[in-house]
């Protein structure tokens, strides 16, 4: 094997290795979105013991870091909660109220599906299981989330409940 060919092969191998390392260590867009979801989930879930005011503020602050300023939340659960929240301030107030009402709230996300993934927007569906700690305090709800990418980071811009049955 000639030295030139050897050098060329070594170069190709090195480039392949670098690409593999980058692929391994640099998260994909879907992984970044899932990370934001996990941060939001953790901030909504309470701990085993009741949080003090400061911890509560920190948690709510962590949640708002995942949201766009003009975030929209549309909740419509048959026979249950329904209403809209517009803007990060309304969501912050609602999250603080929720945390005070259900200090032991545990939220688990499952069946996360990143459906439409475009350069600056994404649509995700998931099932959130909420456990409030009380008797019969477990409920599951499907949500659709819209994400928007801004300055290299993904933010939740819209959250809406999904109902299986609908009228026209």
């Amino acid at each position: 094997m000639s030295p030139t060919l050897r050098k060329g092969l070594a170069g190709i191998l090195s480039a392949g290795l670098v690409a593999l390392v980058l692929w391994w260590f640099i998260p994909s867009e879907e992984q970044r979105i899932r990370k934001v979801l996990e941060q939001a989930r953790a901030s909504v879930s309470g701990g085993a013991k009741p949080a003090d005011g400061l911890a509560l503020l920190a948690r709510v602050g962590q949640l708002t870091q995942c949201l766009t300023r003009d975030v929209e939340v549309q909740v419509d659960v048959f026979g249950g909660l329904s209403g809209n929240l517009n803007g990060v301030d309304e969501v912050r107030a609602a999250a603080a109220g929720l945390a005070q009402q259900f200090p032991a709230l545990d939220v688990q996300l499952s069946e996360i599906q990143v459906g439409v993934l475009e350069p600056t927007s994404a649509r995700v569906t998931l099932v959130a299981t909420l456990e409030t700690g009380g008797r019969n305090g477990r409920t599951a709800q499907e949500f659709e989330l819209r994400f928007r990418k801004w300055e290299g980071r993904w933010y939740i811009s819209r959250v809406s409940t999904v109902r299986a049955l609908r009228s026209r």
């Binding site: 069946e111 299986a164 049955l165």
Partner: peptide, 13 residues
């Protein structure tokens, strides 16, 4: 059976 919230919560109609 209708999928309401994931695979575990179904509606019967």
């Amino acid at each position: 059976g209708i999928r309401e919230a994931g695979k575990q919560v179904l509606l019967l109609k």
